[in-house]
């Protein structure tokens, strides 16, 4: 495989809620390869966003290591971390919240450049470049975010992320707050930019169709753990984990009647996760072993990892 840009090595992140430990991310191993897009899907509250923040060291891991090209991010000093931030950027979910309403667009886009100590002239030049890149007019620099529509605001967010010329871009639900027609525009912009700039991307979403559209490899998260990881084609055509199958079955498709009750029950309480395999209370295949032993994430088919005692089995 090609060289890893980002490696998560048994990374966990705990929070303490009401005196109890909540594992938002639970011993996740993940490798992001250069020039590729890794999709991460899962229900809300499964730890997707925490994973994004861990990858960028916006929150420190409780245990495990986040490696950037082999270097443990947590061991960098403040200056080195700041320089590294230029090379890994994030596009947030809600462009209304992630842009300071009192800053002009030019200042917003230039913020990462200012943090890197770029001169004023270089900042202005670069802002003008990225405005072109994301398809915004040059006169946007002097306006406030409130003068723009949701899709345009997200373009501003993308311009800010791309300004310091990162090689790793993390999109955390980057299109979820947008209208369907705008979603497609922004997705096409992202895939187009990735091809032109050779970006490595991590694309996080609860929307399977969106993830499928942009990703080469896809990881499925459930309650802080990765339950399946495979290439886009393998995962969607030959899902091994019953959770992935129920997710895919729940996506409405024209010409196919929705299978009612394909996902049983509610996501469990993350403060008191089920024993063994976290998915067993909702799983149609659950056996005794599933209640007792948490299945490791192992190769269920060639290049296809799944964390299930009965990978590939179908409910009868």
């Amino acid at each position: 495989m090609s060289d890893p840009v980002l490696t998560l090595d048994r990374v966990s992140r705990d929070y303490v809620r009401a005196g109890r430990r909540l594992a938002a991310v639970d011993e996740v191993d993940l490798v992001v390869h250069r020039g590729k897009t890794l999709g991460i899907v899962g229900e809300s509250g499964c730890g997707k966003s925490t994973l994004a923040r861990l990858a960028l060291h916006l929150v420190p891991p409780s245990s495990g290591r986040v490696l950037r090209e082999g270097q443990d991010i947590a061991r960098l000093d403040a200056g080195a971390l700041r320089r590294l931030r230029a090379r890994m950027q994030i596009v947030f979910q809600d462009p209304n919240a992630s842009l300071n309403p009192r800053w002009r667009v030019g200042a917003i886009i230039a913020e990462p450049l200012r943090a890197q100590g770029w001169s004023r002239q270089k900042r202005l030049d670069r802002v003008s470049e990225v405005l072109d890149l994301v398809g915004l007019p040059q006169d946007a620099v002097d306006r406030l975010p409130s003068a723009f529509s949701g899709g345009q605001k997200q373009r501003i967010g993308i311009a800010r992320a791309l300004a310091p010329e990162p090689d790793l871009l993390i999109c955390d639900e980057a299109v979820s707050a947008l209208d369907a027609s705008i979603q497609a525009q922004i997705l096409n912009l992202l895939t187009d930019l990735q091809a032109r700039l050779g970006l490595t991307m991590v694309f996080i979403s609860h929307n399977l169709a969106v993830v499928r559209h942009v990703s080469q490899r896809v990881a499925v998260m459930y309650l802080g753990r990765i339950v399946e990881l495979a290439s886009e084609a393998d995962l969607f055509d030959r899902p091994q984990h019953p959770y992935t199958r129920t997710l895919i079955a729940a996506v409405p498709e024209p010409g196919r009647p929705l299978q009612a009750g394909s996902v049983r029950g509610e996501p469990p309480d993350a403060l008191a996760p089920p024993s063994g395999c976290h998915f067993h209370p909702r799983c149609p295949l659950a056996q005794n072993i599933c209640r007792r032993i948490s299945p490791p994430l192992i190769e269920a088919a060639s290049g296809h990892l799944a964390s299930c005692h009965f990978p590939g089995a179908s409910a009868s």
């Binding site: 230029a86 913020e111 310091p164």
Partner: peptide
């Protein structure tokens, strides 16, 4: 958070 990610 965006400002922190920017390195400010």
């Amino acid at each position: 958070e965006a400002a922190m990610a920017a390195g400010t």
